[in-house]
Computed example of a mutant assay.
Amino acid sequence: MKRISDQMEEMLNKQMTREAYQAQVYLSYGAWAESHSFQGIATFLYGHMQEEREHMFKILKYILDRGGEVKVEAIKAAPVHPKDIGECLNNILDHEIQNSKEIDKIVKLAHEESDWATFNFGQWFVKEQIEEETLINGVIDKYNLASNQIKDNHNLYDLDKDLATAPQEATTPREETI
């Protein structure tokens, strides 16, 4: 028995496709970084590629669990390679912000429909997007320090090494304890 509206089913399917696209962007940018000898940055981006695929599958399973129909659609090509690491990171942040806006629409519709199961499901993604934006903003801050504050970019090597072992998530204020 289907326990989500047709409109919600459509929005969730579109979000599933967006998550697959996000994975393609991370894959493409990771390959670009690796081809430019930024192995640490590539490792970081590949890790996020896998995370986006997990998000896609989480949505797929949710649609099925709620009795909906999954529609696997074509994924558009990833954007052209960035000109440098700064553009790469800023493009990723823009993608994550857009993704957050789309998730907000799902949560809003769930609230309007009193679909509390989907509202609760969506909260996980809201929290995840806060973490993603916080994490990428932090990486951009480090990149800016490494590339703009030191003449000739000597610290990009250290940034690259740091990102090879960097966590794939960020601590958000609601998780902080005193």
Rank of each mutant, 00 (worst) to 15 (best):
I41H: 01
F119M: 12
T177A: 10
Y26C: 04
Q39H: 14
E52C: 13
I41L: 13
T165S: 09
T172Y: 03
H95W: 03
A42I: 06
M8E: 00
T134M: 06
F57I: 15
H111S: 11
E73Y: 05
F119E: 11
A117M: 07
S37T: 12
S147G: 00
I63N: 01
Q22S: 15
F121D: 00
S100W: 06
E34C: 07
V139W: 03
D152N: 12
T118D: 04
I103R: 14
R3H: 15
D115P: 08
N91S: 14
N137T: 08
D158W: 14
E128W: 06
G138M: 05
Q129P: 07
R53D: 07
V107M: 13
E102V: 02
D65E: 14
K83I: 09
D6A: 08
A77W: 01
L60Q: 04
E51S: 14
I4R: 00
Q168A: 11
Y157E: 15
E102W: 03
Q39A: 15
G30D: 01
T165L: 04
Y157H: 14
S5I: 03
I97A: 08
A110S: 03
E113V: 15
Q168C: 02
Q149F: 07
S35K: 10
I97G: 02
S5V: 06
K101S: 13
E54H: 13
N90S: 09
A23M: 03
E176W: 08
C88A: 10
G68R: 00
S114T: 11
Q39C: 10
E169R: 15
L93R: 12
L45D: 02
E9L: 08
A170G: 09
G40H: 06
F38E: 11
I150V: 07
H36A: 02
H81K: 15
L156N: 12
L60I: 02
N153V: 06
F125W: 11
A33K: 06
E102Y: 01
V72C: 09
Q149M: 08
